[in-house]
Design a protein around this nucleic acid. Structure first.
Lengths: 223, 223
DNA sequence: GGACGATTTTTTGCATTCAAAAATGATCCG
DNA sequence: CGGATCATTTTTGAATGCAAAAAATCGTCC
């Protein structure tokens, strides 16, 4: 049960820069630094109790991941959330969800099934948006993991993390949370039946609908 | 004609660490450092005429991209090519190729069409494996770009670069080069007809066949 | 009163430095 | 002669230092 199951765990071992990558990503995901805000190196060094060297290494990695924007000689900023990019993120994720469905239906082991069923079950017990986000992540990540394709899982994780920054705007919406759970029910039906294409299409569609909800929410915010 | 069209161009502008990321990736792609070989920081610093700081920043980024393996306190090594991972890479790329087909068929502009046609045409004139690799990259990248989805393009580029390390083992095979061109012909037919699903399936299949050729070649090498 | 420009301050990018860890090699003992 | 132990060298990881660039501050002039 050593800790590599949870995607967002802030591992405490390993090299310093790696820790910082995770911690800093956590900060960004929690919205502690607003979109487009400058990232004050000195401040974060103080906060994490490290020097600038590992922090800057972490910034480069996060820039490559798309969380941070590096402006030469002008400092780093939190990558602004661009509605157009959000659409592109979900579109890309759609392709992955489709493949997750096709593969997970065939490759899921007993363990995978257990994890997926459990996440789904817990989700049913927690209709409150607060718990929902984490459990929802777990559910979908368990499905992704059931493909047993690490490359896919890594790509999925990266996109998912980028999308996660938007949860504030959409998980407040209990309407959508309910709808989403309904879609999960359908997903589980297809999964239990090991119906590859059905599962693939349901996952892709679920992703599409979530994307649209996010886009609507973003539009509302910007109004 | 300023240089952001070519994916693998080693841009000369920008921050130092960025240049190094590209240069070093070039070194790795060219196979100058063998799989699993240790990456001598001091040597590369000398070669690039920089200090260790930007080099190490670049290493972190390349590690995140999957080209380099960072072993805490034990130095970095060129990420070894694992046949299983290669299979996973191609599987993942399949999902993307499928989506590229679906989107490019619909979204390709006149410019896109021109670029794609040109790459395809030049490819016909250069059946020699040497020129083939670069032109083939250009052809497929032009298709990816025709989706007009930067997130997809970036993901595609990353996977493609990782796969590119394997070109030595497969592009030597003139048999496969010819087959591949035949598949390209079919792809162009579907593309010109703007047949979404046909194009998608042809691209996915082409990717699958390339993957199998690579796997076969790898097996042969390892024998 | 406000805009422009010079000067100070801060921040950034990279090189250098330093401590700790690992690799290497020499010595000693069985 | 082989293997284990310990000193030496090399390499790594991170902090610090320094020059250049950008931002902020302030004074001056219109």
């Amino acid at each position: 049960m050593a800790g590599s199951t949870t995607a967002l765990a802030q591992e405490e071992a390993g090299t310093l820069h790696e820790q910082i990558v995770n911690k800093l990503r956590g900060v960004l995901l929690n919205g502690e630094l607003a979109d487009g805000a400058r990232i004050p190196e000195a401040l974060l060094c103080l906060r994490f109790g490290i020097s600038r060297t590992p922090l800057r290494e972490a910034l480069k990695v996060l820039a490559a991941e798309g969380f941070v924007e590096l402006r030469p000689n002008r400092g780093s900023i939190v990558a602004p959330i661009d509605p157009v990019e959000v659409a592109h993120l979900f579109e890309m994720k759609g392709a992955i969800e489709h493949m997750i469905g096709r593969l997970a239906a065939v490759r899921a082991t007993g363990e995978d099934v257990a994890r997926i069923e459990q996440a789904h079950g817990e989700l049913a017990l927690h209709p409150d948006p607060a718990a929902y986000t984490a459990l929802n992540q777990e559910f979908h990540r368990a499905l992704a993991a059931a493909t047993h394709n690490p490359v896919l899982l890594q790509t999925y994780d990266n996109l998912q993390k980028r999308v996660l920054r938007l949860r504030f705007v959409v998980n407040e919406n209990p309407q959508r949370v309910l709808e989403s759970f309904g879609e999960h029910e359908g997903i589980m039906v297809a999964f239990r039946a090991r119906a590859r294409l059905d599962l693939a299409e349901r996952l892709e569609e679920h992703n599409r609908l979530t994307g649209e909800a996010v886009r609507r929410a973003l539009k509302g915010e910007n109004a």
